[in-house]
Design a protein around this nucleic acid. Structure first.
Length: 545
DNA sequence: GTTGAGCGTT
């Protein structure tokens, strides 16, 4: 296999990226290591000029047909901010306004689980690796001055905020959570996703990613399977997403239409909803994509009793394998006649911050219907009493598109006596044992990846079910947040806590404290030790949707 | 002095 040496900028230390069999380098491979990059260039030794690398349909082509990539060190091309011509003209002022708004969207973030000893200085120091810290404070007891174990931090850039929110953080020896405080509504949050209509079947996620990377960093691409003539593209910057809405774009010669990812029925969904009071969400409904984000189905659907009757509302082609699937309804939202999943049931019910008692019954894809997974027990997902009743968690904190972790069978903190409840080997605090989940782990992976909760871990668990891009990007970016992404500073013991185990150990709750004892562990054998060093992450989620 | 889910005396 041929490797291409790539660095972020000229002069930086290069990373070797694997080329494809045909000698090309996938942009997705590039982006796995250099998020946001959209191409390559290199310094021509003869002319001393910088040369661009040919790029077409998600692939980068070596400069020389014969000698391939040669010994050059390539460096990345990143899309220029606001490079769009339209912005330069009529939208210039609004673009500026938008940028200001972006800054305004930075909000104080609450940091939970701080060590008692953590000071405002050390808090600030830690978070400065993510970006400018405008404020860092520890809440203390007024009299004693003792820390209450939580604090607040505010960043100067939204991007830093997003990265911080996507990770967990080892601060002064404790894994801390960072969230948007309850007191802050994120109702003004602008969606980062766009709906891309009129897609043809040959437009794949790489195509979309490559094309839309021109406008800004693409963090996710979702193409419903089976083919439904639309897809979703998520940008890091919601402004970019918004700026594209309403436009037609040509991808592979096809005119696609970009619009807001919010379902068209959004406005009047409140009075439809909840027609089918049982088994509508159905267990196949765990589509990892939620076009509107924070609507996790407010319930009313939990009477699925584990039969094989999967009713996919709307959508049509629920040509799932095995079992008896029938489609009910033809409504729903979507564009251009695409039935986006029907959702005549309780999919969208409340008007804000849903999921109060919800489970994971949304079935956005309607016909998508998860046509795989004949062996896995999906029915577990539709447990009518699956907890998470109004406990907030991520859901009510305004964080868009977060999964119902409990519905996914995931606990957010390990349990251990020797480390104060902190699972030191699990950076995200996601008590996840893919092999013990009552559902398709690939789906969980997809969901978590979708929601940016899980990235690198998956490759430690099952090479066939890797999550991918977004979180791994978040976590790995610039390598300076290793605390958050690469744990096990001092090693862990081999044994039950090694997520590579395919047995019953793993990250499930109730691991022995010993196995979670990171600090005391002997060196070597780090189970969670590393995030990807290659491009293995770039697995199209749609493979298992 | 201990503790470990939470939500900020301004």
């Amino acid at each position: 296999m041929d490797f291409v040496q790539v660095s972020e900028e000229e002069g930086d230390e290069p990373i070797e990226l694997p080329a494809e069999e045909d000698g090309t380098l996938l942009i997705s491979t590039l982006q796995a290591q250099f998020p946001g990059s959209c191409g390559l260039k290199y310094r021509n030794m003869d002319s001393k000029a910088v040369r661009g690398v040919r790029s077409n349909e998600g692939r980068l082509f070596p400069p020389c047909v014969d000698s391939g990539w040669g010994e050059y060190v390539y460096f990345c091309v990143f899309p220029k901010e606001n490079k769009r011509k339209s912005d330069d003209n009529l939208e210039n002022s609004t673009a500026k306004t938008k940028r200001i708004e972006t800054r305004l969207r930075c909000t104080d973030l609450i940091v939970l689980g701080l060590a008692w000893k953590t000071t405002e200085d050390s808090l600030r120091e830690y978070f400065e690796s993510y970006g400018e810290v405008l404020m860092a404070q520890i809440k203390k007891d007024v009299k004693s001055g003792q820390s209450k174990g939580f604090g607040f931090v505010r960043f100067g850039s939204y991007e830093a905020q997003m990265r911080v929110l996507a990770n967990r953080h080892l601060i002064d020896g404790r894994w801390c959570e960072v969230k948007v405080p309850n007191s802050k509504g994120m109702g003004h949050q602008v969606p980062c996703k766009v709906f891309v209509g009129r897609c043809t079947e040959d437009i794949n996620s790489d195509d979309l990613r490559e094309y839309f990377s021109k406008f800004g960093e693409v963090t996710d691409v979702f193409i419903p399977r089976p083919f439904r003539a639309f897809s979703f593209v998520t940008f890091l910057d919601p402004d970019v997403a918004q700026s594209l809405c309403g436009e037609d774009h040509i991808i592979k010669g096809v005119s696609v239409h970009v619009s807001n990812a919010a379902p068209k029925a959004e406005q009047n969904r409140s009075h439809q909803a909840q027609n089918y009071s049982y088994n509508t969400g159905n267990s196949y409904g765990m589509h990892s994509y939620h076009p509107q984000g924070n609507h996790m189905n407010s319930g009313r659907s939990g009477h699925h009793r584990g039969n094989n009757q999967h009713i996919a509302h709307g959508g049509g082609d629920n040509t799932a394998i095995g079992n008896s699937h029938s489609n009910i309804g033809s409504g729903g939202y979507g564009m251009g006649g695409n039935n986006f999943g029907g959702n005549l049931n309780g999919g969208y019910t409340n008007s804000s911050n849903h999921n109060s008692g919800g489970n994971m019954n949304r079935q956005d894809g309607g016909g998508g219907g998860i046509p795989y997974n004949r062996q896995n027990n999906f029915h577990g997902m539709n447990q009518p009493h699956n907890g998470n009743v109004g406990n907030g968690g991520w859901m009510n904190r305004g964080h868009l598109d977060m999964p119902n972790l409990q519905a996914l069978g995931i606990n957010s903190q390990g349990s251990s006596s020797s480390n104060q409840g902190q699972n030191m080997n699990n950076p995200l605090g996601v008590g996840l044992n893919l092999n013990s989940l009552p559902m398709n782990p690939a789906l969980v992976a997809a969901a978590l990846n979708q929601w940016s909760l899980l990235g690198n871990q998956l490759q430690n668990q099952n090479q066939d079910q890797q999550g991918g891009n977004f979180l791994s990007w978040m976590a790995q970016n610039s390598g300076q947040h290793s605390n958050a992404s690469n744990m096990n500073n001092s090693g862990s013991r081999k044994g039950p806590n090694n997520p590579n185990n395919s047995g019953s150990g793993g990250m499930s709750k109730g691991d022995s404290s010993a196995s979670n004892d990171q600090n005391g562990g002997p060196p070597g054998g780090n189970s969670w030790s590393n995030q990807s060093s290659g491009s293995q992450n770039s697995v199209d989620k749609s493979n298992f949707l």
